[in-house]
Design a binder for these strands. Structure first.
Lengths: 304, 304
DNA sequence: GCCACGGATGAAACTTACTTTCAGCAGGCG
DNA sequence: CGCCTGCTGAAAGTAAGTTTCATCCGTGGC
């Protein structure tokens, strides 16, 4: 036994494949044939049955088992699983999707999907990373204690504002959203100390939203700005500034990345508020879910 | 695909786990127990023998096999290998953020943010992975050639529907969204061959949306469903099925993950449509951007 | 309320895959 | 030349995976 009673650790930490390659010369001829097959295409080997692999290596099943033991595995099934895992790991990481990049003219849909998803996911992750928990905490506290919450947003950001309003409403907070500037201004004029006003604007330059937020601030409400640009005008009228981290999206992406980033922030605030009073929030959510139940039809189909 | 000449394809190239999550509600109770075990710890499942897994799921081996078939595998060994590969691919996120998991009661805001962002980003990525480009392509083609596009969605999905409508409108496509069922039904009744109707429902069980989509189909329009559950009722009335891959979100997350996933799909379709006629789309977008310019105030501040 | 039906389920029979045993055989050495 | 040693595959044995089938349970029709 040239190979074994040694305490050289059947460790093989990094790569099983590498480990096998290293052991190759110390294996018997028949086992080497098996090893070569395995090393050259681990994924394919993982798919084969032991008989299959034995045949391919022009040897018997017994030899394959011996090979498994030689490389430190308990048996063939274990080897198979390890191989599958190895093979999966060494799959090329996503190709050259330029972050924040444009979509090349010749791109097919699969590429488009990959690029968009990559950028969208990145926007969400990066937004979360740069969010200041301390500021969030303060905003959550303000919202939790507010008598009333006004949320402003125009265009695309209006969707997010509306979403936020709905969320807060569902857990029993008094929140409003106004699709119309004039109504919003009127409402802002009625805010006072103890109320909260939230303005959402990706660019931070939407005059309508800024104006309304400013009005709210004058009246003594705590103002919150949600924007992608920490130095944009909207931040001048905000007590608390929360920023998203969507890279400047090209016109083609439809600005969805910024939308997703905003929604993520909104979700964080929402969950933060809900967490402050679990019992009440849970109850409210269950009640609202119950309410739409009659508008749902039977369950999913079984089988194919 | 035993069910209809549907174009939705048992695709699942990206994530097997995700695929299983989506199918979960369409599985029988015993199979669901198996599925939950598998989803919650794929790596562990891969290590188990079929008998072992069956015991853990408090069921018989036969059910495990049935489960394998239900999710599109040939048998248990194949599932095992795929599972091992999947598990290896997803480099375990360092800390204990349970995917799709609940937020622990004691969590501070920083944890909440991290958890939410992680789940949201994952939903976006996984949705993109399992999207079938071929189906997308067909939908894009249908939209591009449509005389008119109706988009339906209720509640949270209504936001997405509305967003989609606005996007298409911005690049000069004739698209409509109806917040009200009656109006929607009326509109659907006026659709015909060459028109496209798109129904959005996370659960796939929203009767209002299904009803309207069915009406549209009867009138000869091409129907598209966007849902998280590939076997849900809405897919019965759809010519094309597009699925999102948001894991079942806990009540606390406010279902934002599913929203983001839907938006991502919508964005892909939008970009796909826009890419079909770059010049025209670009021009339209520039014109619309121009239009809101007067509602923007001066640039961002420099310095601190 | 009863019955027929269909789907879900696990026990058991069955098949296939994996593992062990063992005898043959090739090469090396006295 | 004969014996030993270690490699090897055939075949036996065991465990894992798969199929079949009887039972059970809920549903809807009469």
């Amino acid at each position: 036994m040239a190979k074994s009673p040694k305490i050289s650790a059947s460790h093989e930490p990094g790569g099983l494949i590498v480990h096998i390659s290293g052991l190759l010369p110390s294996l018997s001829p028949a086992e080497q044939r098996v090893a070569r097959l395995v090393v050259s295409d681990p994924a394919a080997a993982a798919r084969r049955t032991i008989t299959d692999l034995a045949t391919a290596a022009e040897t018997s099943e017994a030899t394959v088992i011996r090979f498994c033991r030689s490389v430190g595995m308990d048996g063939y099934p274990q080897l198979r699983i390890r191989l599958a895992a190895e093979a999966a790991r060494r799959i090329e990481p996503p190709d050259a999707r330029v972050v924040g990049g444009d979509i090349p003219p010749g791109a097919d849909l699969a590429q488009i999907i990959a690029t968009i998803a990559f950028n969208d996911a990145r926007a969400v992750e990066e937004t979360a990373e740069q969010l200041d928990p301390a500021v969030c905490e303060q905003v959550v506290e303000a919202i939790s204690g507010a008598a009333r919450i006004d949320i402003y947003g125009a265009g695309a950001s209006g969707f997010v504002a509306s979403d936020f309003q709905q969320k807060l409403h569902r857990i029993g907070r008094i929140a409003f959203y106004f699709p119309d500037v004039h109504t919003a201004l009127t409402s802002a004029a009625l805010l006072g100390r103890g109320d909260v006003a939230i303005g959402i604007s990706h660019t931070g330059t939407t005059s309508d939203v800024i104006e309304v937020l400013e009005q709210a601030r004058t009246r003594g409400a705590a103002t919150v700005a949600l924007t992608n640009f920490p130095r944009s005008p909207i931040t001048d009228v905000a007590d608390f500034v929360l920023t998203t981290a969507a890279r400047e999206t090209t016109y083609r992406s439809g600005a969805t990345a910024s939308r997703l980033a905003q929604l993520t922030v909104v979700d964080c605030l929402f969950v933060g508020v809900a967490a402050r009073n679990r019992a009440r929030a849970r109850k409210a959510l269950e009640a609202t879910a119950e309410a739409v139940q009659s508008h749902r039809v039977g369950a999913n189909r079984r089988r194919a």
